[in-house]
């Protein structure tokens, strides 16, 4: 079991309230996923900076008091790049004016205990172990702003409860995926992708789906074609919710084993595993509420 939530605001005024509207959605899915939580928020482009990199220090000792300022200073010194830092506890977002691969390689060499959560022009990513309420308060989810977000509450069934195995998973840039369900062929997918130089961070089944779909997108498939190939290649039970800089996308396996419900108004599209995570949203009584059909592709653009 796990909980999925997604929110895309159509009304620009609501962008400032994205996090505030989402926190009760995430907490509403606590029974479905009490062990970890996370979310990816898409904020629009990174302004003057080329890329944003979300980084997690909770895997190293004393990670909550990690010296992020020191790392930012060293990065500036050694790579001669312009950097802005937004840090809280075990989490930091570096906005860099350089090739993010060079920055990430430097981080990996100098601070191998740090875990890269996401890279992109628009995406910021947060995930950690703890109840959804704890994780939401740890990172001030209520204050997040942006156009759309993808969130997840985890009840681990396939792999261990660790921060890096929490969702969302990311691959490449500005792409993330959350999953309710379990895949039966993640190792087959890995064996297919690893020879192509695709690196996996964990043994988690969801990571295989995330890396497979991002690989298809990178190979030139549009989202629809990539998802079609996903239906052919990914075996198991799933509701997947994915985020790109301009869209949320949802698919369910042919048996619709895992739930999903959508509420749409003129102001927003909200997705959750169950209606109880949508009940608090403004105007919900007049929203178009429906269940997405199995094996159909749903894409909502900002």
């Amino acid at each position: 079991m796990c909980g999925i939530v997604g929110l895309l605001v159509k009304t620009p005024d609501l962008r400032a309230r994205l996090g505030e509207l989402m926190v009760p959605m995430l907490i509403g899915m606590t029974e479905r996923g009490p062990d970890s939580a996370g979310l990816a928020v898409f904020t629009g482009d990174a302004g003057d900076h080329a890329r944003k990199i979300s980084v997690y220090s909770g895997l190293i000792e004393d990670g909550d008091n990690f010296n992020w300022q020191g790392v930012a200073h060293e990065l500036k010194e050694h790579l001669g790049v312009s950097i802005t830092l937004e840090a809280k506890g075990n989490h930091a977002i570096f906005s860099v004016s350089a090739d993010p691969e060079i920055v990430k390689r430097w981080l990996k060499d100098e601070y191998p205990g740090l875990f890269i959560l996401s890279t992109g022009k628009s995406i910021n990513l947060y995930k950690d172990i703890g109840t959804p309420a704890e994780v939401a308060s740890r990172y001030d989810f209520g204050k997040l702003q942006g156009t759309h977000l993808v969130g997840h509450t985890r009840m681990a069934t396939e792999t261990a409860v660790t921060p890096d195995r929490a969702h969302p998973f990311t691959a490449g840039e500005d792409f993330c995926l959350v999953h309710n369900g379990s895949l039966s062929n993640p190792n087959g997918i890995r064996r297919k992708l690893e020879p192509q130089g695709i690196h996996f961070d964990t043994d988690n089944d969801t990571e295989a789906a995330c890396r497979f779909l991002e690989w298809r997108l990178r190979e030139g498939d549009n989202l629809e074609t990539a998802l079609k190939k996903g239906f052919e290649e990914l075996d198991g039970f799933y509701t997947f919710l994915m985020g790109t800089p301009d869209a949320l996308a949802l698919i369910r396996d042919p048996f619709a084993c895992k739930p999903a419900v959508v509420a749409e108004t003129d102001d927003y599209v909200a997705i959750a595993s169950e209606f109880r995570s949508l009940a608090h949203l403004p105007g919900i009584n007049h929203a178009h509420v429906f269940e997405p059909a199995p094996e159909e592709m749903y894409v909502w653009k900002i």
Binding site: E274, F275, R276, S277, L278, A279, H280
Partner: peptide, 11 residues
């Protein structure tokens, strides 16, 4: 007759 309001998706 019992009326239930604000069910809000409760199980």
């Amino acid at each position: 007759k019992i009326t239930v309001i604000n069910p809000d998706g409760a199980h």
